[in-house]
Design a protein around this nucleic acid. Structure first.
Lengths: 336, 336
DNA sequence: CTGAAAGCGCTAACAG
DNA sequence: CTGTTAGCGCTTTCAG
């Protein structure tokens, strides 16, 4: 293995000069920098990560804790993870993958052994058991999602309340008067994950403001459930013309169910969703939707972490504004 | 930060004794072990990962390179990654996540800086540009998938040829005489990924052996493509009664298309698939399938790596035997 | 702008 | 069965 002293000798400088040439932490004359760089190239030098971490107390590794549980749309998690890795690399960091299953002990382990410099935690619950630990940890962290109190933490997520509002307002602008929200599975609400409730709040508030009548329907993600809820909606609310879907796996089956029940989308029924853009585009009738910006959340989470590592203060809460894209599934209300 | 010397002092032993008590690399009397463990607990000691890596030349971290490209079923990748992390933890290792995008330079970087001890590379192409590097690297690696020559490498995957055979043989036993394979998108074949071709080989060979007539149809993953290929099959092969699907996103749409064209599954047409069990179970008509055992592949890959790290020889090729589960989508041929 | 040298915290000979 | 000690390869004062 070629080490820093080899490079130093080869370049005719001291090891510290090589180190500084690499880190840029002190000025180096153009000429010596050239020599050092040449030596590094010629010898194929790579600084030893462990030695670096030991001497500098920085591993340049971030921990990413991903959820496993049911009811989570896997592609979103994956896209998020990829975006975290990609952004971390831009800041010369790597990413260690942890599963939720490891729990608090896992967080403590990677933090206390100095394996990682900082942590990103996905799928935060309102009353997440990891919160006290994350507050106490000597390492910065960013959470995806919002617990009941973000006091002393750094949280980021899509503004789900505003997303719910945006969907309803879009339908309101198109003249719709009665809307329904087909929501996440009941367990998501029970599990006390904030985002589902926020959507409901935004949805209801916006409908009230616009004087629309509205109803909320938590719904299983099973394909059969689509038919059931579609029939129920038609039966109980024949005047319904606008639907907001916040349930990825159900989006396509639900539209199918409506059409099989004789409702044209968007002719008779306008449908909007809160989901990843790729999903909204892939449906047979491309769906007007508020994007779930997993890639952007990942990028922003890393950027927040980098600022914290640099000692800069960052806001406790970052809410990404919703972005609604009109597609084929919404149209002005068909006034008979 | 509490360090090993603190623990040693607290327990009244030498640092090396603490180290050996932790690693078990030499016998420790029951009594001192107790004292050391107590000291560790009382002080909340955690060995510094970097220091350890530096002194032992082992980071206890594995690299996992995941693919990003289109045509790859994301949940399979995620499930695989989770299984790698979970198994690695059983062996006291962590997992560093890399994207394909980083390319050879990324592999070289984490290997040469000693950030990781070993590597797992997914989605290997027949003529993968990373092969020479992986052969040359001073660190063990395991590849998921098979390149043209696995000489000097360690590869593992489902035995896709046998999987193709198993599907056909199942249909043969049920009396079917004419079968079709609806395969992966054309780009998957072009991209020279071995597994798609292996399925074709097994499919064709088994059909020939059983005296069945057979045809192969690469197919886009877009939902619209299902209808197109279904119509084509009915038109060109009216006697067709058995279909093997090797294209996850198309499975459900294809069955829908067949039924919309008036064919009952499995009454008129038996369908089998090569796909994750969860997908096969989630379809409206649960599909008889050969499982894509991503979790098992992940586990086995880590186990292979651990044996290589321990200096044990391992087979160059590991082919996991297919496991076919009968579900509702296949039935004996309906002889008129 | 550059060098010398003291650690960073741990492991693994070596010695007993 | 346990202790002493010399590094592991790099960063970062401290000096110049």
């Amino acid at each position: 293995m070629v080490k820093i002293t080899d490079v130093a000798r080869h370049a005719g400088v001291s090891p510290s000069t090589v180190s500084y040439a690499l880190s840029g932490k002190r000025p180096i004359s153009e000429e010596t920098r050239q020599r050092v760089e040449a030596a590094i190239r010629e010898l194929g030098y790579r600084p030893h990560a462990g030695a670096r971490a030991l001497a500098s107390s920085r591993s340049n590794v971030l921990a990413l804790v991903v959820p496993l549980r049911a009811g989570i749309h896997v592609p979103v998690v994956m896209q998020f993870a990829v975006s975290v890795v990609t952004t971390a690399r831009r800041y010369d960091h790597d990413v260690l993958l942890l599963t939720q299953e490891e729990g608090e002990e896992g967080l403590r382990r990677v933090a206390d052994t100095a394996l990682v410099d900082a942590l990103i935690v996905m799928d935060v619950q309102l009353d997440d058991p990891r919160l006290p630990l994350l507050r106490a940890l000597e390492r910065p962290s960013v959470m995806i999602g919002f617990p009941s109190s973000s006091e002393g933490l750094t949280c980021i997520d899509l503004d789900f309340k505003a997303a719910g509002e945006a969907c309803v307002e879009h339908l309101a602008r198109l003249g719709h008067r009665m809307v329904a929200l087909v929501g996440s599975p009941p367990e998501v609400y029970v599990r006390q994950t904030a985002f589902a409730q926020r959507v409901v709040q935004g949805f209801t508030a916006a409908a009230d403001r616009s004087g629309m009548s509205s109803s909320v329907h938590p719904c299983e993600a099973a394909p059969g459930a689509a038919r059931v809820v579609a029939e129920q909606l038609l039966r109980e609310q024949p005047a319904l013309t606008g639907v907001v879907v916040h349930n990825e796996p159900l989006l396509e089956p639900l539209i199918d169910a409506f059409e099989q029940l004789g409702l044209r989308v968007p002719g008779d029924l306008s449908v909007t969703a809160i989901c990843p853009d790729e999903l909204a585009e892939a449906v047979r009738v491309p769906v007007t939707s508020v994007a779930l910006p997993s890639a952007e959340v990942g990028t922003r989470a890393v950027e927040l972490l980098m600022r914290k590592l640099a000692g800069t203060a960052v806001p406790e809460a970052t809410l990404l504004p919703p972005r609604l894209t009109e597609r084929a599934s919404t149209a002005p209300r068909n006034v008979p």
